[in-house]
Design a binder for these strands. Structure first.
Length: 401
DNA sequence: AGGTATTCACATGAAACTATTCTCTGAGTTAGG
DNA sequence: TAACTCAGAGAATAGTTTCATGTGAATACCTGT
């Protein structure tokens, strides 16, 4: 682009009426003032936590619900309110929110406790101490003065799935050792069956109360989108039926509000880039494709090299034949590994990698028997063909082929 | 024709191995008393 | 002297290999008509 054109471009850009007012209200970490269609859950949780206002220890709570059903949102909201109420009445209440999914921050017992200790203002070394020592330090920190404590452990099912329920047992037991302060734990889980696999002692003490978050239906999603879009976008930027379509898309995928908002945001960005004065239905379609494509590319990008080579091998065959079998892939995989300079893995492992790629939803693998000619996995692609080329190019570049 | 046995080409499981990451211990270091 | 920090030993874990066993149906091979 020439200099003059570029100057024109920028001035045009500024002249244009923007679609967005405040994009942040569509982002997933945004905390809205009111949360539609969650009154019941808010009330339940508030009622459970209310004893804190009388300096009594509230019961431990468990929140269940699929992703994007407002669990985190509701709990932070209620906690915020109760914190303010306590401040007004001069009650000492401290809260801490910890997402257990964060890698390298809270994915081992030691790290979780260390992170909690830090959260309450005690600097602890990242490594080098015995675990019971760190418990002791944490306990001392919080037990210094008389106060109430509310911990939110988000995505707790991920943590327990990784390191077992010992940590929850220790945390609940910790309460009986506290002299001055009282601790309430709010556990948030995406997995509805989560407590079934817990130690019964942990289960009974941790889930004294339970709050279930059902998925949003299309009508509720529409409301949420309307509310948020009023904050995020200028007036009258939506074509007829755009928000409804957005809601319908997300409702199909287990009522995930996060997805719906993302869809709306991306649709807005696309139409802005296209210089369109408003957001049309086709932009929603584009947005959905783009989100899906980004998801796939992101997964592929973050896979280990061996996994990438396996996928590359699959794609290479998929071009020619419609059906791909493990044996074909493995030969090609072997050659590619040598070309790239990696030692090839055994067929056993590659078979598992194929199963992993299947789990990630990038390929479809099913076991078929071809009679005399053996048994193998028949592999097809789970991503639309328009994206396959992109993935292949990405892999080619990433692997230096 | 109908029934059974064989056989293929991997799938699937379990155990063993290995490299990396965590946890723990004790020695060294620091800072406050 | 107590608290803290750090390095290295040992334990735990993840990723992989090795070995063993399992699988479904097309085909080969019988068997009796």
């Amino acid at each position: 682009m020439l200099k003059k054109d570029l100057a024109n471009f920028f001035s045009d850009y500024l002249k244009k009426k923007p679609l967005f007012i405040d994009k942040s209200s569509l982002q997933s970490n945004y905390n809205p003032k009111d949360i539609p269609h969650r009154d019941e859950q808010i009330e339940q949780l508030a009622r459970i936590l209310a004893p804190a206002l009388r300096t009594e220890k509230p019961s431990n709570v468990f929140l269940y619900g699929k992703t994007g059903t407002g669990k985190t949102c509701v709990s932070l909201h209620v906690l915020n309110q109760i914190e303010q109420a306590c401040k007004k009445n001069n009650i000492k209440l401290k809260t801490y929110y910890l997402n257990c999914k964060l890698k390298k921050v809270a994915d081992t017992e030691y790290r979780v406790i260390a992170q909690l200790a830090r959260g309450f203002g005690r600097e602890v070394p990242a490594t080098g101490l015995p675990t019971d020592q760190i418990y002791k330090m944490f306990l001392e920190t919080i037990d210094k003065d008389k106060q109430l404590l509310i911990l939110i452990l988000d995505e707790i099912d991920q943590l327990v799935g990784k390191i077992g329920d010992g940590i929850l047992y220790n945390l609940t037991r910790l309460n009986s050792e506290l002299k001055n302060c009282q601790m309430t734990i709010i556990g948030i889980s995406n997995d509805l069956m989560f407590t079934d696999n817990l130690d019964p002692r942990v289960k009974s003490s941790l889930s004294e109360e339970e709050v279930v978050f059902p998925p949003y239906n299309a009508i509720e999603l529409k409301d949420i989108l309307k509310k948020r879009s009023e904050l995020a976008f200028n007036k009258n930027v939506f074509d007829e039926g755009v928000i409804e379509k957005c809601a319908a898309y997300a409702a199909r995928e287990h009522g995930d509000a996060r997805r719906a908002l993302e869809l709306l945001r991306v649709a807005g960005e696309i139409s802005e880039r296209e210089n369109s004065p408003n957001i049309k239905i086709k932009h929603i379609d584009h947005a959905e494709q783009k989100i899906e494509k980004d998801r796939v590319l992101d997964i592929v990008k973050t896979q280990p090299k061996q996994s990438q080579i396996t996928l590359y091998s699959i794609l290479n065959f998929y071009n020619d034949h419609k059906r791909v079998f493990t044996g074909d892939i493995y030969d090609f995989y072997n050659d590619t590994c040598i070309k790239v300079g990696l030692t090839p893995l055994t067929q056993r492992r590659v078979s598992d990698i194929i199963a992993e790629l299947d789990m990630l939803g990038i390929i479809n693998a099913k076991v078929v028997s071809k009679g005399r000619y053996g048994r193998t996995k028949e592999i097809g692609m789970a991503i639309p063909s328009s994206n396959i080329k992109k993935v292949k190019d990405l892999l080619k570049e990433g692997l230096g082929l």
